[in-house]
Nucleic acid binder design. Structure first.
Length: 366
DNA sequence: AACGCGGGGGG
DNA sequence: CCCCCAGCGTT
């Protein structure tokens, strides 16, 4: 976090000019987004959670539906987690939904139903980290604190020509210090939003649109023509490939057997069809039978392949084989964790599923 | 500090 | 194919 170019002091000197240029640009060029027309801290909080690692266009419909279904923190706190997960279905990173729900209950129980304005109280709520706390404090409560997200890191790395890997901890601390120097006493929320908007609209990864940027007169990367080389990327891991299998089992009433995933794990709390990962050394069919026994203490016969699909996740690429099958022995046992039930085709979409299961449903029961 | 956590858009 | 996205929590 050393300040080799003396940029911290320079940032402090240029802060007012940067804020003036940026806010002028923002008022003329900002997108009209639904969370920009509300002053409700809960709505702003919700938008910030949904926007974590998820693009604006993807969030908008979820945001509208969620607020319609859970208009206040108390409504959210009263709701069953399952309903919240259903509202989050297919958006990914479901721990966000679980944490938001838990946080709403904490707010009702410990803060009188109002989102706390104290930074430490805010950060103590599950799902609210440094960025989200800064965003809520500045945008909803008008506090002069920075909000450093991926956009801001990229913008500031160019503005101050930070040539160290962005995902390095010390670089991030340095960027946060820069952001702290820049944030104005007034209009901090607008300023933070403007910095992010600049990153989203102009100062984009790879090929920034410097010709339209209000900050070229300040930008050290632009001055040195290094804007295309910044920010410096860190190294990234390759995604391994994994194999999994699932089975469609029906009872005498033609209902489908579904299983709920453990609350804290991968896709936690969402429902799935019986099955799981195929281990090395197992055939797909063996793996499927073994997973059914482990998962439900169920002996199944694997019949015919119904479909195979590819699904990408953050840390691996999955090939999922789906089979029809029959139960050879007994009824499903209690799984170690979670729950199971028989769902009719008409009812099954009331349960929250991940993208892979949604694709299975779409293919087999359109 | 490194990793787990989804899904989709865009080059 | 790759990267990246209004990051956080755990280890």
């Amino acid at each position: 976090m050393d300040d080799r170019q003396g940029s911290l002091e320079w940032a402090e000197q240029k802060a007012k000019e940067i804020a003036t240029l940026l806010l002028f640009w923002y008022e003329k060029n900002k997108r009209l987004l639904p969370w920009r027309t509300t002053a409700d801290p809960y709505a702003i909080w919700l938008s910030e959670i949904m926007l974590q690692q998820t693009q604006v266009d993807a969030v908008i419909p979820y945001y509208r539906r969620f607020l319609e279904q859970f208009p206040t923190i108390r409504d959210l706190a009263r709701a069953p987690l399952e309903a919240v997960l259903k509202a989050w279905e297919n958006m990914g990173y479901y721990s966000r939904a679980r944490h938001l729900h838990a946080a709403a209950r904490l707010v009702v129980d410990s803060h009188g139903g109002q989102l706390p304005q104290d930074p430490d109280d805010l950060k103590a709520l599950p799902g609210i980290g440094p960025y989200t706390a800064g965003a809520i404090l500045s945008i909803a409560f008008g506090k002069p604190v920075p909000a450093v997200d991926g956009n801001v890191k990229r913008v500031l790395s160019r503005l101050f020509a930070v040539d160290r890997p962005l995902n390095d901890g010390s670089t991030q601390r340095y960027i946060s210090l820069l952001a702290e120097k820049l944030v104005p006493a007034e209009n901090a929320g607008l300023f933070n939003s403007a910095l992010m908007e600049l990153g989203a609209l102009l100062c984009r990864p790879g090929m920034p649109t410097c010709s339209a940027c209000p900050l070229t007169s300040i930008c050290l990367a632009y001055a040195g023509n290094s804007q295309h080389q910044l920010p410096v990327a860190g190294k990234r891991a390759k995604r391994p490939h994994k194999e999994a299998a699932a089975v469609i089992l029906r009872d005498s009433g033609n209902r489908l057997l579904i299983v709920q995933r453990p609350a804290d794990g991968f896709l936690g709390g969402l429902w799935k069809f019986p099955g799981g990962m195929v281990n090395p050394g197992e055939t797909v069919s063996e793996g499927l039978k073994n997973r059914c026994r482990e998962e439900l203490n169920l002996s199944v016969s694997v019949r015919e392949p119904l479909l195979t699909l590819q699904q990408g996740y953050t840390h691996f690429q999955l090939t999922l084989h789906v089979f029809s099958g029959t139960i050879l022995e007994g009824n499903p046992g209690l799984p170690a964790t979670g729950n199971w039930l028989w769902a009719s085709v008409g009812d099954i979409r009331r349960f929250p599923f991940s993208r892979a299961e949604l694709r299975i449903l779409e293919a087999l029961f359109p």
